[in-house]
Design a protein around this nucleic acid. Structure first.
Lengths: 215, 215
DNA sequence: GTCTATACTTGGATAGAC
DNA sequence: GTCTATCCAAGTATAGAC
């Protein structure tokens, strides 16, 4: 099957057809889940013909992976600027909370969690999804590293383990809050974490960077 | 559709047909995921007729919920005894680690995570799954409560938030380790948590219970 | 590049024989 | 309570007209 190049799309209301399709795929994945994200339901949601999925992406699964890569790239651009500035646990948590809420609203984490579940049904998806997650592990690890840099925590906190745990927690919180349809428990948990961060800060000496608290 | 009572099953190799079906459902959910857990594939895995699913459970989704309830009951029985004795964070972590590994081996968490994902496709599943999770939140909360009881942590740790976070982390770790097919990262994380618990213990006074360390 | 039409497959569910 | 046979809906994918 000949796959058209990314630049060959014609424009309909300002977006290429390719973009329309990946956006509809994201919407469908969020609204109907992996098992409900068929070529037909995606096409119905996006208002285009079902056959276009196969013309542009070859298969439904290939489309879903492309959609995941798209939202991943978008989020990485949006959030990396914000997290570059983070240099305390408190600030990290505040950022994490707002990012989490935004992801929940826009369904970004949902796309990921649905695809991970779908990888059990189509094992070939597994490595391709993992490729999309890896940058986020590195990204998270860098943020954690920046936060502990220069404090006594640096010697005792295994940043790669913590990053892995944060990403896992993020996924799990999404699953649970999707399930019970409310965000109160997550908000409450973030509040508790922020208070805990303050508690740890009180046990630590100030850093050598003037004006900064270590936490 | 008349649903047969739970006691009316005949015996084949020691298990009732109902049990054979729920066990096959668990196996299929683990091996093929929610999208692959059709009546036909479940029946093939269990070596029985596809029509039995509908006779005994009415629908595939009803079977899957019944399977989740079954594994939930089994795990609750197995683990509650172990966790009753836990009264320190260190012991809690050791228990949590072995429980997590056992769940991973036997696919218990997998059944749950696949069904949560499936609830996006069939919203009526959501509340029914939540009913199966709630006891685990209470269970986890009780364990955390027992661990902080009598220590200064009791005043600052919001046990219900922590329990919610633990369950979420548990789900997220399962998703990730299922995806990359290895358990190293999770083992490493548990190790880090256990060291961290020791660190916190060193900041706390001993409890009033002789022979016990607060952590 | 996009549409219609269609071939083929799988899955949910039921009827009725045993 | 279990099996065979079957119906119908939905899905993937392709061919070919436009």
């Amino acid at each position: 099957m000949a796959k058209p190049g990314a630049r060959s799309g014609s424009r309909l209301d300002g977006r290429s057809t390719r973009e329309k399709i990946t956006e509809a795929a994201v919407d469908t994945l969020c609204a109907e889940g992996f098992a409900g994200a068929s070529a037909r339901s995606i096409a119905a949601k996006g208002g285009f013909n079902q056959a276009l999925v196969f013309y542009h992406f070859g298969s439904v699964n290939d489309l879903l992976i492309a959609a995941l890569a798209d939202v991943g790239r978008t989020r990485m651009e949006e959030y990396s600027a914000a997290l570059q500035k983070v240099d305390s646990i408190g600030a990290l948590l505040v950022s994490a909370r707002s990012i989490f809420n935004e992801d929940l609203d826009r369904g970004y984490v949902k796309v990921l969690s649905e695809l991970i579940s779908g990888a059990s049904t189509f094992p070939e998806l597994g490595p391709r999804i993992w490729n999309e997650i890896r940058p986020w592990l590195g990204f998270t690890e860098a943020a954690v590293q920046r936060v502990v840099a220069g404090s006594p925590l640096e010697a005792v906190v295994p940043v790669s383990d913590v990053a892995f745990g944060i990403v896992a927690l993020y996924l799990g919180l999404e699953l649970l809050s999707q399930l019970n349809g409310e965000r109160g428990a997550v908000e409450s948990l973030f509040g508790a974490l922020e208070r805990f961060a303050g508690l740890i800060a009180s046990f630590l000496p100030a850093t050598d960077r003037p004006g900064d608290s270590a936490l």
